[in-house]
Nucleic acid binder design. Structure first.
Lengths: 362, 362
DNA sequence: TTGTAGGCGTTATCAA
DNA sequence: TTGATAACGCCTACAA
């Protein structure tokens, strides 16, 4: 549409200049060039300057393929995630890319689309690409972790994050979900709640099991017997959150607080509570999990738990680099559990500092 | 914590097996191996089967580094984005990765962090990595596109998306923002609105300029003179959206609809309107832009424009592959404009089919 | 149908 | 301090 500027007549495909070209031009050997460029010790400062100047002049770019082939190791880190969408994985990937590039690595990313076979193929591809290490968050359909053994067999550094296999013989970075459930519940207690319900997630997934566990632990420590009626299992959707709330409010003794294992179910619950004329947080306090973007714009804003996505990515890279640097030296698999951060917002803070309320304990 | 399963005593770093290994074992030449594996025509079916069987047995993985080095082209596509967060870029990357891997390519991803220098370094890295092509969404601080000339100079396929340089001598995929502004405004008109305000974004960014342009076009076609008082410039934040709404409602003749150039400012406007006792959409209709996740959970849900993130990624890959396949043949730069999708929701639909309202035209 | 040999660009080893 | 040379693993004329 706009002005046709001076357009190159033909995209005169310039060949990249190689070390051999520089060597020829300077009348020295390739070895010298290589040494100058890689800042080797046995090289004269004068020679080095000459080489660097010429390299700059011709805008020399090292061929990383050749280098990696020769050295047997690339500067690439492979990532396998179920998908790149929503809030969680993109943020983790963001953290990974940032930490990796700071350390001089680049990142090649694959999606498994929650499919084990795709995950297997991704592994093969990354092995073929001679990556220096692999970061994986397993697909939902990955029941056995045997395909990761071939990676191990190659002696290739491997670190799992978030969706990790059980056991302590793998490197893994996870969020401490139990702690998340624990601090959330303790917070609700501190606000004066005495009948705290829990909207649980699918219990075959560790994260939800652990959040429930933390909830139980907090109640136990507070000397409260858990009321199984107050634990409702959902698929974590907004709809089922609302349904669960309906069910809870219909109880003879309805809860005065709800800890949901996810933000969407928390949202559904909050909307349902208000629909039924309950005030949030005065009549019923609510807290969620994941720090979804929308939790800041609900009215009231939603108390939630931040999952430290970026930190998880960075921690995974750090661990991977440790393994890489260990080289062939024996490395004992390490597990890292990140401490979640409770974000206290409007949906759970009752006006009066609620300590005295402990009097009317159930 | 859990059971210590049978743990490999030493991670016996198995060397990857090469074509030479297979050749030795079978007593044939590497050429034969290569041909068998790459399904070359001049190879006996018996031989081929033998080779494939052995390859499977040893779990042979081709070394893509070596292959790429030899062929001068890798199966990698480089992406440079300002960052991997929020809704937009992750979705585009998702689309890119999906389309690329379907075509047998893998994706190496870099963030410029909105910094030209970082963008330059990223370009160098991707060139070094001998990628087959590059997809870029420019950083905010990229005022001149001269550093992309070196990529062109190398004859390396290059496609811009979303944040693209001006002019028609680059390959580019963008959303048709003007169309988005146009259909949004037409929709509000069709609902009976007669004084439509616009919350504009920073006008030095093309996307916002074009959305405003679409708004003007729709009004013009409807035979309405634009009222400059109804065009408020904001930084697209929720806060400024609310402030703008306050200002608009204080006018002698306040608007009966608002088209915001972004969802956050739309949200701010909607909240402010309700705070002042205006009903949405009856008293004032509202529509936003970007289809942020939260637009589905506001009350009422927010009418908005979807930016076709994934399609953008796929279109960018398709265009890139076209350029790659053209090889050295001359390729005329191509620009693709994706048609946005208006998502009509509660914030803009007035109960009665509003055509008759045209009577009380201002 | 199969084999031989050279080279892609870099780095490591050895000798000068 | 520098240079010659041989790999790294794969591909592809060309020859048999």
């Amino acid at each position: 549409m706009a002005s046709r500027k001076k357009q190159a007549p033909v995209p005169a495909s310039t060949n990249p200049v190689s070390m051999a070209d520089l060597a020829r031009e300077l009348g020295v050997s390739m070895t010298t060039i290589s040494r100058a460029l890689s800042d080797h010790h046995s090289i004269g400062p004068a020679m080095k300057q000459k080489v660097l100047k010429l390299a700059k002049k011709y805008n020399y770019q090292p061929n990383r393929l050749a280098s990696a082939l020769r050295k047997g190791k690339s500067q690439l880190i492979g990532i396998i995630v179920p998908y790149i969408e929503g809030r969680f994985f993109p943020s983790v990937v963001h953290g990974i890319e940032t930490a990796a590039s700071r350390a001089g690595y680049n990142v090649i990313i694959c999606q498994s689309n929650e499919d084990v076979d795709q995950e297997r193929r991704n592994l093969d591809i990354l092995l073929s690409a001679q990556v220096a290490g692999i970061l994986v968050s397993m697909s939902r359909t990955t029941l056995e972790a045997d395909h990761f053994e071939t990676v191990r067999g190659r002696g290739l550094p491997l670190v799992f994050f978030d969706r990790v296999p059980e056991g302590d013989n793998v490197n893994a970075v996870v969020l401490d979900d139990q702690e998340g459930g624990y601090v959330s519940t303790r917070h609700l207690l501190s606000q004066g709640a005495r009948r705290i319900a829990h909207l649980a997630g699918p219990q075959h997934l560790n994260i939800y099991k652990n959040r429930l566990q933390g909830y139980r632990q907090a109640l136990h420590e507070a000397g409260m017997a858990p009321d199984e009626q107050l634990i409702v299992h959902t698929d974590m959707s907004q709809e089922q959150g609302a349904a669960a709330m309906r069910q809870l409010l219909a109880l003879p003794a309805p809860p005065d607080a709800v800890f949901a294992a996810g933000d969407y179910s928390a949202l559904g619950a909050m909307q349902e509570a208000r629909r039924q004329g309950r005030r949030v947080p005065q009549d019923v306090s609510i807290s969620g999990f994941s720090n979804e973007a929308f939790t800041l714009i609900t009215e009231p804003t939603l108390t939630t738990v931040d999952q430290r996505c970026e930190e998880m990515g960075q921690a995974a890279v750090r661990l991977l680099l440790d393994v890489i640097e260990a080289g062939t030296a024996p490395f004992t698999p390490r597990q890292v559990a990140l401490r979640p951060e409770l974000l206290v917002r409007g949906s759970s803070v009752r006006a009066a500092k609620a300590e005295p309320a402990a009097a009317h304990l159930s």
